[in-house]
Design a binder for these strands. Structure first.
Lengths: 127, 127
DNA sequence: GTCGCATATGAACAGATGAGCATATATAAT
DNA sequence: ATTATATATGCTCATCTGTTCATATGCGAC
């Protein structure tokens, strides 16, 4: 289904740029996984949970208590984090302890925080 | 509004862990910005646009043509990227060229890709 | 087995989000 | 001025998402 809207007559992108682009761009499937991963990071509740796990292994009820949210809400979010292989869990009696299962998260967050920091610096000097 | 649901009687999180957590956790406002940033990365269209910009400066119509999407859709997404200060633009006649305005993006993507790669490795060996 | 507590999960509902359409704006040419 | 082209934007709608509620499951104590 081609675009019915007229697209610009002149193309500015160079052949070698297109070549390079095709070389560096991951597969459609990988791009999808990448977006799914970042979607997981796109929610403050999940970010807060991950920050808790940066410090130590924590049980569900402690997360709920600390974030002042329902056990159900936390459990739902932990499932998403689990599906993305960002956290693991171990059972100890009735309690389930969650911990980090990835060492990229911290680095990703740090890079994100740096971006935000630089952006707010720019806001201050630009007015 | 306190949780009406009963939360676990015993707390497992230690005092010093809570102290450390409060020390390393960014402000509510920063956490919100961080989630907003990752939300922007949580869409394949925007990821694809950013990958194009990794290679070179590109105009709107070339993005639309390359991704086989409407000019309007691309423009909407570019606005979001602009708001997040991830891209900048310059006008040349009728054409508007967009380019990257941040050097953290590539690193964030690389870390994300590494996570995905390791995860798929695990899937293969775990069955 | 029953009871109580910790966690998981399905359904439902409100709010957010991405794309399409129509239209507005910007620039250049005439 | 008008016309044509490139981009931006407001509105709408279908889809997705996060939370709540109710309920199920898992485990230990009895």
């Amino acid at each position: 289904m081609a675009a019915t809207i007229e697209i610009c007559k002149d193309t500015f992108i160079h052949k070698d740029a297109v070549e390079k682009l095709k070389r560096i761009t991951p597969s459609e499937e990988t791009l999808y996984s990448l977006s799914e991963l970042f979607k997981v990071f796109g929610d403050t509740t999940r970010i807060k949970i991950l920050f808790m796990l940066f410090v130590s292994e924590v049980c569900v009820c402690d997360i709920a208590a600390f974030l002042n949210m329902s056990q159900s809400a936390i459990s739902h979010q932990l499932r998403i984090l689990k599906q993305m292989r960002l956290v693991r869990f171990r059972r100890q009696g009735k309690t389930v302890f969650y911990s980090l299962d990835d060492n990229h998260i911290k680095r990703i967050f740090d890079q994100g925080l740096e971006h935000i920091l630089e952006r707010s610096r720019g806001e201050r000097s630009n007015g």
